[in-house]
Amino acid sequence: MLKLNSREIIAKQIAGELKDGDVVNLGVGIPTLVSKYLEDKKIYLQTENGLIGMGPPPNDHEQDIDLIDASKAPVTITPEASFFDSAFSFAMIRGKHVDVAVLGTLEVDRYGEIANWSVPNQPILGVGGAMDLVAGAKKVIVASTLFTKDGSSKLVKSLTLDSSGERRVHQFVTEYANFIFQDGEIFIKDIYGDLTFEELESRIGLPLRRKITI
């Protein structure tokens, strides 16, 4: 069996969090990989550019240039898929018809507020649909590696980058652990990497709480 890389570990863990019947929006980056690990779950994947019923990524010979997600990556569709315009898509999001949004992130603060769209000294394309999804989805899960290339934690005391919205997310899933934000504290739901609870707490530099049942 091939060993999963960090991005795939995160995607597989998030797929395990989703429930049959969920309408789910997958953001750019790691979140797009979640569709590979849904197996037999009946999940309805929605994209901002106007599709509900997105299937797993296509093989090279299955690609259709007219079938893309919001990040312009090729996708497949399920038999019950529906197409609509972007305005209707955002009405679904703002009307709270999306059960779960899975977003990438650059930082998450100790309360679950995220920054995922603006990097200093880099061109800014705009926040895109992230701000709508943070505000409109019933549940928000963020997906990212836990540490930056220089070893700094992306789970921080206070954001140093531009916020994606004041509403706080529910979970932060990384290659090391699944974090839950609740009552102003950070709980670890699961540890599945090679760092212990004590090592995670030391490297992150924030107080963590042991596993909870939700």
Rank of each mutant, 00 (worst) to 15 (best):
T213K: 11
D66G: 07
D150V: 08
S6W: 08
L206V: 09
P207K: 06
F88T: 14
P56V: 08
A70C: 10
I30Y: 00
T148M: 04
S86K: 11
V156Y: 11
E8T: 02
Y192L: 05
V140F: 00
T174W: 07
K72I: 05
I124A: 11
L133E: 04
Q46A: 13
G21E: 09
I43L: 05
T32F: 03
K157G: 06
D66R: 15
T174Q: 10
D60I: 15
E166L: 09
R210E: 05
S152M: 12
L38G: 08
I204T: 02
F88V: 14
S152V: 03
D40F: 07
Y37P: 05
S152Y: 08
G104N: 01
N49A: 04
V127M: 00
P57Y: 11
G193T: 09
A11G: 04
A135D: 14
E48T: 15
E185Q: 15
Q46M: 13
A91W: 11
V102R: 02
K138C: 08
I114T: 07
Y192P: 08
L195I: 10
A130C: 12
D183W: 08
E175H: 06
G53N: 07
G205Q: 02
S202A: 13
D22S: 04
I180F: 12
T105Y: 00
V134Y: 05
L45Y: 11
R167E: 09
R168L: 11
V134G: 02
D109I: 03
F187D: 04
A15P: 09
V34S: 00
V134N: 00
E185V: 12
K41N: 04
P57N: 08
E48S: 15
G16M: 02
D99R: 03
L45M: 10
I180R: 15
Y176E: 13
R94Q: 04
N5L: 05
L33E: 01
D99P: 01
K138Q: 14
A91P: 00
K41S: 02
D40V: 10
E48M: 12
S6L: 08
L2E: 14
V169W: 02
D85N: 14
F147G: 07
D194I: 01
F147R: 12
L38V: 10
E166K: 13
H97F: 14
A81Q: 00
L45S: 00
Q182C: 14
N25T: 13
L106P: 00
